[in-house]
Design a protein around this nucleic acid. Sequence first.
DNA 1: ACTAAGGCAACGG
DNA 2: ACCGTTGCCTTAG
Length: 119
Amino acid sequence: MHCDNEQQLTPIQRILMVVDMIPEGKVTTYGQVADLAGLPKRARLVSKALKSSPPSRNTPWHRVINSQGKISLPKDSHGYRTQIELLRCENIEVNQGKVRLSDYKWQPCIATLVMDLPF
DNA sequence: ACTAAGGCAACGG
DNA sequence: ACCGTTGCCTTAG
């Protein structure tokens, strides 16, 4: 018996599991993370989850942007600059705080997700 | 590109 | 427990 108790993960835990799966060099949106986590219409919860995730967890929070391809942080904030830097470190182009989703959006294989996520 | 409105949960009294 | 406010992603215009 290995891990039956994973049936009742909290929404935030599920969100972070999805974020963990975003490959390096790719981005996705808050809304898609929520959808993949089985939480439609809860994009806002995704930002809460990312905010509450301790740095020691190494969650790739910077790979989550909004549906316009823009960074959802105040332009004058430290987080804004950090996110751009992290994205560029993995060869993602950022212009005017914006990423071309048509070039960099993660297109997950559903079959893979089903196998890797316990829900 | 920008604004408005919809949606939804956390928060405060 | 109830309800208005707040915050903010998404969609529509």
